[in-house]
Computed example of a mutant assay.
Amino acid sequence: MQALVMQTLARTALFASLLFTLPALAQDAGTGDASAGERSWNKCRACHQIGEGAKNLVGPQMNGLFGRHSGTVEGYSFSAANKASGITWDEAVFAEYIRDPKAKIPGTKMIFAGIKNEKEIRDLTAFLKQFDKDGKKL
């Protein structure tokens, strides 16, 4: 009988700890940290700019990325593959692309090994989503 009580208490304690842990895990799984994403942006800034006054460099400026059609930044010479990709950038498409750009758009000019860490991708996404098409922070 005592063993049964101990097992029940252990299960109750486990259940209680899950109730407190799961919301934190769910938040971590779904949202990114823009501050951490700004640090990840350092991997991008050699080729891209973002924010007010951003210009095209080796790669296009990244203002207002989400909701934009691929290959449409004014003044940037995109690859034919990028222009023909039919992509409209959203969080899921960006995550797939940034993991392995050449796999998502074969023929892209972007030379980047990719970001494999899911949390880093969410963080970078949160950072990018702060900027509207004019580079103003939302």
Rank of each mutant, 00 (worst) to 15 (best):
P101T: 08
K83G: 03
A113S: 14
M110A: 11
T88Q: 15
K102A: 10
E38G: 14
G67I: 09
K55H: 07
G107K: 14
T88H: 12
F131L: 06
T125E: 03
N63V: 04
D123H: 05
G114E: 06
I105R: 01
R68T: 05
R68F: 04
V93G: 01
E96I: 10
C47S: 07
A95I: 06
E120V: 08
A34E: 11
E118C: 09
N42E: 13
Q49A: 12
P101Q: 09
F66V: 11
V73T: 03
K109C: 07
G64C: 05
G37S: 09
M110C: 07
N63K: 04
S85I: 00
E120R: 11
L57R: 11
N42C: 09
I87R: 04
L128A: 03
V93T: 12
D123K: 01
I111R: 15
T31F: 15
E74K: 13
G37N: 11
A113I: 07
I87C: 07
E96H: 14
I98T: 04
M62E: 00
R45L: 13
S79E: 08
I87G: 11
H48V: 02
G32C: 04
N56P: 01
L65E: 00
F127P: 00
K83C: 03
K104W: 02
E118N: 14
S79A: 14
N56K: 00
G30E: 15
G86W: 05
G51L: 05
E120H: 09
G114W: 10
D100R: 10
A29N: 14
D123T: 04
N117K: 12
L65N: 00
Q130F: 06
D132Q: 11
T88V: 12
K83T: 02
F127W: 09
D90F: 05
H48Y: 09
L57W: 05
G51I: 03
D123M: 07
D134P: 03
S40C: 11
D134Y: 15
A113E: 14
I121S: 00
R39P: 02
T125G: 03
A80C: 09
S79M: 11
K43V: 09
K116A: 15
R45D: 12
K55S: 08
G30K: 13
E52V: 14
M110N: 09
D33W: 02
K104L: 11
F112S: 08
K129N: 05
E38W: 06
I50W: 03
T108Y: 03
Q61A: 10
I115Q: 07
G67Y: 10
I87S: 05
S85P: 02
I98G: 00
L128H: 02
A84P: 03
